[in-house]
């Protein structure tokens, strides 16, 4: 098929405004979802890591929600919340929740008890102990969770096509319906991968900046 190349720079140039708009949609909904999810999952993780009887049911419920397929979840949410951005946003929050929750509890579980003891001996109250000792120790694990949630979310947004809000997924679908226009599908797929890579890199750098003590130790 000579008229249907896999790559076409002129397609990218000619459709730059539409591609950019979809990219902004894609990044916006991902970042917002992961931010909401982090704001819920980290405090919840702190809470359930303190009481053993709560952690089982909460993690179990999050795991059940995580098992529901994205297309199914969007299909359940769309008739109730309306077509568009909202069901995609809520779906992404739900999926990110388990990942971040798991990493928060895992991070808090590995805090060195000797360090906690030392802080307590220095007269740290429970609030300061949490904010200045436990959470910083768990930070690398939490950041790892946020990164994983972000990368997975970027790929998941494309499924939002089904409810009319798929970011670059909209472009993929358009290319599919547009007589299988390869350059369009390929551009959107590569764009999605690039978004994931860039956001992952940003979070990696943020994580590094937030944990300077880890660098000093390894240097």
């Amino acid at each position: 098929m000579p008229g249907n190349p896999w790559f076409s720079w002129s397609y990218v140039v000619g459709n730059a405004p539409a591609l950019w708009q979809r990219t902004l949609d894609h990044v916006g909904v991902t970042v917002e979802a992961v931010a909401i999810s982090t704001a819920i999952a980290v405090p919840l993780g702190v809470l359930i890591s303190r009481s053993r009887w709560m952690s089982g049911p909460v993690l179990g419920a999050a795991a059940v929600l995580y098992t529901i397929p994205s297309l199914g979840l969007f299909a359940i949410l769309a008739p109730l919340l309306g077509i568009g951005r909202t069901p995609v946003l809520i779906g992404l929050v739900v999926y990110s929740l388990l990942i971040i929750l798991r990493n928060t509890t895992a991070g808090l579980a590995t805090v060195d008890p000797a360090v906690v003891d030392a802080a307590r001996g220095l007269g740290y109250g429970p609030g300061r102990l949490l904010l200045q000792v436990a959470l910083p120790s768990a930070l690398p694990s939490i950041v790892a969770g946020v990164r994983l949630a972000t990368v997975s979310s970027v790929a998941l947004v494309t499924v939002g096509v089904v409810v009319g809000f798929g970011g670059l997924g909209q472009i993929m679908f358009q290319g599919f319906r547009n007589n299988l226009y390869r350059a369009e599908i390929m551009t959107a797929t590569i764009g999605t991968i690039l978004i994931a890579l860039v956001l992952d890199l940003v979070l990696w750098a943020a994580g590094r900046a937030l944990t300077p003590w880890l660098r000093r130790r390894s240097a």
Binding site: T158, I185, A188, T189, A196
Partner: peptide, 15 residues
């Protein structure tokens, strides 16, 4: 494999 959008791969295979 996590970063690859499944939907894009499906459409690319279709094309």
């Amino acid at each position: 494999s996590r970063a690859l959008p499944t939907l894009g791969i499906v459409f690319l295979l279709a094309s």
